[in-house]
Amino acid sequence: MNDLVQHSAYFGVVISVAAYALGILIKKKFKLAIFNPLFLSIIFIIAFLLAGDIEYANYEKSANLLSYLLTPATVCLAVPLYRQIEVLKKNKLVVLLGLGSGVVSSLVTVFILSILLGFSNEMFVTLLPKSVTTAIGMEVASELGGDSTIAAAVIIVTGIVGNMSADIICRVFRIKDPVAIGLAVGCSSHAVGTARALEMGEVQGAMSSLAVAVSGIMTVILAPLFSMLSV
């Protein structure tokens, strides 16, 4: 099986897209937040790889095409942002203060939880950039002396948790304003959460894309200051 997969240029893409399509079908049928298509497709693929005894490297080689599109797709997030530029201009203060408080609360929460859960200092700095987009977070973590692999894993899981629970969290906190929802989702769960915000509406999606970029940059500046604390 590994030999066959190793020589296929399409295996990874086919199984990824098929698993995601299956995830969408299940979500449509059951309409429950737990049946998140992204979450489901990942479970299916991991199960498939384990069942077929296929090495991750062999899957990744041909699934790479999908990750490759992530940079141009992120660049394209400027388009919904541009379409909502008037909303953004009128909400400069909201964006700045909302995201500022989000970023600071993220760093403070990581500090407090690291103490409560007894994480090592290395783990603490690894977790500091957990709410920002994977590419920024990995670099921030390694710059601060953390482990970028663990950072990537935690960041992605954070994104999925945010993507799956955005609707419920906003309902519980009674966040109804579309601008506030977008900022909250992007600030807490980066691009993976933004995928959900884009489904909620164009304003939510645009604000979420904006939040990913701005809160990422804020974290680059603030995380080194917090890393001076030690747990």
Partner: peptide, 29 residues
Amino acid sequence: IVIRLIIFVPVSTVVVMGVCGRVAQAIRT
């Protein structure tokens, strides 16, 4: 550390989303 991370990730995600959303909404209102 997997168990501790399972506690850590949802808690911090909820806090950040809640704080950012409430602050933004309060200013808008």
